Deep mutational scan, measured.
Amino acid sequence: WVPDSEAPNCMNCQVKFTFTKRRHHCRACGKVFCGVCCNRKCKLQYLEKEARVCVVCYETIS
């Protein structure tokens, strides 16, 4: 899990986070992404309901 303080930009597209461009943690890899790069949901083994995942993890999992 990457702390918010260590991620000033999206770890995929590099967009800078602001008050309106929020950070989202991928529940699969723990990296920090913008809403566009972390907009998929899928079922993870260790969680009961679907969770937010990044586009890279989504392609790997599904």
Rank of each mutant, 00 (worst) to 15 (best):
N12G: 12
A51L: 04
K31E: 13
C54Y: 00
C13Y: 01
C38K: 01
T20S: 10
K41T: 12
V32H: 04
V32S: 05
K43F: 15
F17K: 02
Q14F: 06
V2T: 08
V32T: 05
V53G: 05
K21A: 04
E59D: 08
F33P: 01
G35W: 10
M11H: 08
A28W: 10
N9W: 13
T18D: 04
I61M: 15
S5V: 06
C57K: 01
Q45W: 07
K43P: 14
C10R: 00
N9A: 11
P8N: 09
V55N: 14
N39V: 05
L47Q: 13
K43R: 12
K16D: 11
E6G: 09
T20H: 15
W1C: 05
Y46H: 13
C13S: 01
Q45L: 07
V55I: 14
K41N: 15
C57R: 01
E50S: 11
C10P: 01
I61H: 15
V53N: 05
V55C: 12
C13A: 02
F33C: 09
L47N: 14
T18N: 12
I61W: 06
I61K: 13
A7W: 02
Y58S: 07
C42R: 11
Y46C: 14
C42P: 08
N12P: 00
L47P: 14
F19H: 13
E6M: 07
F17H: 02
F33H: 05
N39F: 06
F33E: 04
T18R: 07
C42L: 11
T20Q: 11
R22E: 06
A7L: 03
R52E: 05
T60C: 14
F17M: 06
V32Q: 04
R27P: 05
Q14S: 09
C37L: 00
P3N: 15
C42H: 15
M11Y: 09
A28T: 03
C13W: 00
C26V: 00
V2K: 01
L47T: 14
M11E: 09
M11D: 09
V55Q: 13
P8E: 14
C54P: 02
C42N: 15
R22T: 03
N12Q: 10
N12L: 09
K31H: 14
A7M: 11
I61D: 15
C29G: 00
R40T: 14
Y58M: 04
H25S: 03
A7K: 06
G30F: 04
V56I: 10
F17P: 02
D4N: 09
T60W: 15
A28G: 06
V36D: 13
L47E: 14
S62D: 12
H24T: 04
C57L: 00
V2P: 00
E6V: 06
N39I: 10
K49R: 09
K49C: 07
A7S: 08
P3S: 12
